[in-house]
Design a protein around this nucleic acid. Structure first.
Lengths: 223, 223
DNA sequence: TGCTGTGAATTAGTTCACAGCG
DNA sequence: CGCTGTGAACTAATTCACAGCA
């Protein structure tokens, strides 16, 4: 029964789709043709039923008695995540972290193309990192009229980050990956995901030398 | 396979505690004495009842009609998260990302002390970044007998990351923050949290130009 | 009165269990 | 058969709603 469960997809499902994609790439590289949900569980630690259910939100993909065709599933997931074609991404903040991100491999692998880097520090503007010239953040709106990026990464200090977010929203950005330790206020139609190292470390710290068990042993914390 | 800790503190609660701590620091700096759950909601986007419930797992902290004493709450949360004293942390991988992390401010703020950096690249061993000399990863077990770190950050490529994790576990590490896009297999008593930029970007990509709403608008994704 | 603390209700997410197809 | 796809059962997490206290 191919009914597109267009009813809301759980957010954690989307994160897991990216994990499946990673495994599928490995399988493709080693010329494996098909994979069953049980084998996917072995590779990722994610429950086999969970894998099947995650896919079921988007239609039917597998062949009973056989499993899933690697390349076909890969193709479907990339289309679901809209990374079947290049996604332009802009980065704000060319500090330690921002600069490290520019050189991060894996953008390419996931069809994410970093198309511009911005900073507000005049000393940095004009400098080149990894083939990209750092632009003045004040020109973000104007430049994004050409670039058409819908995704932005924020890697600036917490102070002033709200202003940065506001300007990005006015530049047409619809999704923000925020590394600054601050809560952003954005319109309803803009998605935000926060990455906080310190928060992650704090959670881990809680578990050290406690009598408490690890919350998730094998499975990745796919939020 | 995902078995949860026998205590009934939800994992997301721990992440939010770190967020509250951030707000409390700001308040302390500006000499604010008390804060109500409603005001905390305004500052973080986290529901006021959620805030109260999060704290209730650990006892009673507030004064009815008044709110919470900033410094007292700060003190209690740091003790809960075991960051009331310095937590030694070791880092594996001195590449782009690893190096950026070494210079990250906020370790100090959260009483996390980066005490050693390791790499397996002989060209890097001996080099200094931010006052820390890069050590040969093969000496991690030996060195950690002095350092007594229980928390490690992994910032190496996906290939070989399982070996790194195994060695860390044998060196007494009980909590791992993993930046490599791979699923780690570790003993039950070792906690792992995965940070995957590409996964986060994939989730955001899904939300671009779709008719679907952002999953969490104001509240930080404290998963 | 203005707030906290918390059972109860609700919503979200995961896993089970099995019908049914190739 | 061996596998998928999915309603049903379950478990986790959030939010409501209100009693009770300073």
């Amino acid at each position: 029964m191919t009914q597109f469960n267009q009813s809301r997809v759980p957010v954690p499902t989307l994160g897991r789709l990216a994990t499946y994609l990673r495994v599928l790439s490995d399988l493709e590289r080693t010329h494996v043709q098909t994979i069953s949900s049980a084998e996917m569980e072995r590779q990722t630690g994610i429950n086999a039923a969970q894998f099947r259910k995650d896919l079921s939100y988007f239609g039917e993909f597998g062949k009973p008695g056989v499993g899933y065709t690697v390349v076909e599933l890969q193709d479907r997931i990339t289309r679901i995540l809209k990374i079947d074609r290049r996604q332009p991404v802009i980065l704000v903040g060319a500090g330690n972290l921002g600069s490290a991100l520019v050189g991060y491999p894996g953008f390419q692998e996931n069809q994410m193309e970093l198309v511009a880097v911005f900073d507000n520090n005049p000393a940095k503007v004009g400098t080149v990192i990894h083939n990209l010239t750092i632009q003045d953040f004040r020109s973000v709106k104007e430049l994004n009229q050409q670039l058409h990026a819908r995704i932005a990464i924020i890697a600036v200090p917490a102070v002033g980050v709200q202003r940065v977010a506001d300007d990005l929203v006015h530049s047409g950005i619809k999704a923000i990956l925020n590394f600054a330790p601050a809560t952003l206020r954005v319109p309803e139609d803009v998605a935000v995901r926060n990455v906080s190292f310190m928060q992650e470390l704090a959670v881990l710290s809680y578990h050290t030398s406690g009598k408490l068990m690890a919350p998730d042993v094998l499975p990745p914390s796919n939020k």
